[in-house]
Write a protein that binds this DNA or RNA. Structure first.
Lengths: 115, 115
DNA sequence: TGCACACTTCAAGAATCCTTGTAGTGTGTG
DNA sequence: CACACACTACAAGGATTCTTGAAGTGTGCA
């Protein structure tokens, strides 16, 4: 996880419909949803949904699997965790207590769980 | 914290220099750094740094305080936490164990720490 | 094989964002 | 007050990204 990857992921999420898609899939869990349902849920055209799903896929935030003639998309949870972890890396020069207890705890967990 | 705010924050971070600035300030902690030092550290022109710092400020990710003729910028930790929390909201329909243990723990903390 | 469905790819115009230079504001010092 | 310093605001161009419609690919069913 380097800076370039992080910018790619941030840019992928920095869009109304793509963020809605991502959060929908986060809610949905590992099973994910077919592209058509996603498009309906966020009010996107088939073309638009396809474009945005591709962006999220390329960024490593979701992944696609074909099931019959449907294509299901689900969150790539490891990619998501790496990403959240990256944003808070080296928080307060390694002394997260400086940031107050809220971040301290979150940071500790994220870090401890990095491979 | 609504979807619009989140997109604003994501877009603010979805830029090479702005992400570098943010992470620099995360490392630096509550004291922050003056604009000039930030500009040097990320290799930005004064104009460019000012532009990007304003973006991050408007997004609610950092905040400025004037100290003499310097302006110090520091991370807005509460804004950062709200933001991280928003991204993982309602993870796996409230059953984070579906996502595996890594996310489950992180999610639990973020959620428990929301006011 | 032929058709319908689910989705993707391509292309072009519109909108947005980033960069750069110049001018301006606020602060401290002599 | 006059000047230097740190930084900000404005404006214009160039580049990137989003949207939309039409055409194409792959799959399942009769």
């Amino acid at each position: 996880m380097n800076s370039r990857d992080a910018v790619t992921r941030l840019a992928a999420l920095a869009h109304d419909q793509r963020l809605a898609i991502f959060r929908l899939l986060v809610k949905e869990g590992p099973n994910g949803l077919p592209a058509g349902e996603i498009a309906d849920a966020v009010g996107a055209t088939p073309t638009g949904a396809s474009f945005h799903l591709k962006e999220l896929d390329r960024a490593g935030l979701i992944h696609a699997t074909r099931v019959g003639r449907y294509i299901r998309y689900a969150v790539h949870f490891e990619g998501m965790r790496q990403f959240l972890s990256f944003l808070t890396e080296d928080c307060c020069q390694g002394n997260p207590e400086l940031c107050g207890p809220t971040i301290k705890k979150a940071r500790k967990l994220c870090k401890g769980e990095t491979k």
